[in-house]
Design a protein around this nucleic acid. Sequence first.
DNA 1: GATTGTTCTTTTGTGCAACAATATACAATC
DNA 2: GATTGTATATTGTTGCACAAAAGAACAATC
Lengths: 302, 302
Amino acid sequence: MSPPDSSRPRSDKNGSERAEHLAGLIMALARREGMKAGDRLIEQRLADALDLSRAPIRLGLKALEAAGLARGEPHRGFVLAKNPTSIAAQPALAAVRRNEQVYATIAGDVLATRLPADVTEAELMRRYDVTRAELQRLLDRIAAEGWIARLPGYGWRFAETVSSPEAQAQAKAFRAVIEPAAIAQPGFALTQEVIIRLRERQQRVFEDEIEKMTIGEIFQSGCEFHEEIIRGAGNPFFLEALRRVNSIRRLFAYRSFADRDGMRRHVREHLRLLDVLETRRYTEAADLMARHLQRPLVAGLS
Amino acid sequence: MSPPDSSRPRSDKNGSERAEHLAGLIMALARREGMKAGDRLIEQRLADALDLSRAPIRLGLKALEAAGLARGEPHRGFVLAKNPTSIAAQPALAAVRRNEQVYATIAGDVLATRLPADVTEAELMRRYDVTRAELQRLLDRIAAEGWIARLPGYGWRFAETVSSPEAQAQAKAFRAVIEPAAIAQPGFALTQEVIIRLRERQQRVFEDEIEKMTIGEIFQSGCEFHEEIIRGAGNPFFLEALRRVNSIRRLFAYRSFADRDGMRRHVREHLRLLDVLETRRYTEAADLMARHLQRPLVAGLS
DNA sequence: GATTGTTCTTTTGTGCAACAATATACAATC
DNA sequence: GATTGTATATTGTTGCACAAAAGAACAATC
């Protein structure tokens, strides 16, 4: 119909989009693990932690070096050049992949119901100007996160879980059921190591990182905390259910504002919960969790 | 390595695999709806119910006619030729699609841990002798059901939810938490129509169909019952969580034997539950549900 | 007025071949 | 002994042309 519009260049000439992405993953990991400047970045260890092999890790490391965040000597591997900070604060890695942007745009459009519940791939390809392959990866990811599903014929349907305005309250109600229940499960237990690791991380956040973290990171850290706790039930169904809720809550998170004080209080509750869990008073812990989840707090943040 | 084995014929000459599949869907629907011989099969209505358009429905109807299960007059549409019975009992439609078999085989292999947790697509293609496209559809479906997930690099990883031997008990524990809790949610409500429809269906199963149904069908009917109930909470997170558990329980179901008496008792409990729900005694209903779910019963059947 | 028959358009799946990314194994180096 | 460097095999992705499936609109029939 319209003139054969010279479509957007197939692949922009930034050679190393993937590499920068990997670099970001590595930095995020280093951050979570509380690594400091000077710590070694051991390929195999990173590979294991990220469920990859050394080849892609190495790409990421080279990108980190190019960005000045790591230093490498031949045969001696790489070393962190700076204390890892928020990725968002690293302009050198700011080449957020195009797909991320499209993802975010779609998420925004769905949340604002600017998209119909049922859509076809072709529609989306036109609307967001992506290739079929790119779109399919996106859709697969979204499907895995549980907010879109294939229709039997053509097209996809967004889950009501996202499109509805009450979704946030519903997510909260759901968590208020499963999280305390998980803790109250007969076999519930957390190893000392896990508790220590969680406490360290929360403490770090509490003491000096809250100010430097983005909303997304704070949210992520909260999710990981709760998921680690619920994992203690030893029942993957609880964990998986929580993961799904969280992946949807993440969509809302970007809209919520940063209330650093509220967050501090929130993290303090996490620490308190850990204390109770450590002494194995699980009934009490379940109770505490229930109250923790009821607190109003920052919209959408727990 | 081995001689270039003349691979399996691309597409066996059964022209209408898809059509038979659609026919099966239509019969299953007719069955669920309690239709009888002589009832009209209205294209648009079927299309709406199956989330498809009339084109594929029509294919299915023609296949049904070819199989002698429906009769069609020009310009007068199709009519059920026989009371719809178990699809398994319809040899004419027995051309279960090859993919179903592969699916079942994979499921079996995973349950019996004959497969490693991490697999690559190429491995699976070789092992089950399917094309890439076929395999991808299967994997997508399995991923949607939640028991496999893509790894960041190559390959896929089966969820521990399936591979572990305690999965069944864990599914039960999880349901015992969410189902009663859903009923106990503040806004819980079921419309009279839903209750009536459910009661009808359960009654039908109870009175004369249990004997004729396959394990899979009985299981399916149970799932639908519970899902319909939980939907009353108006919170899609509960519903979705239950759906996921059920799609995994379905894998186990095929291994369990048929205890028709246990099932009768089971269905009777469903009917009792409906009575309580009808009078809006939700606390009591939640209780009843909790007990219903605790009952040992047939392995894997609730 | 509802339903079916027919036709046309749009959308999606498929197979292939070149290409890119990842994994693996082993040698080299600290 | 652990870690990095390198080479090679394996695996997955992309774009394209073509085939098949699904959807939509409207006429024909009951």
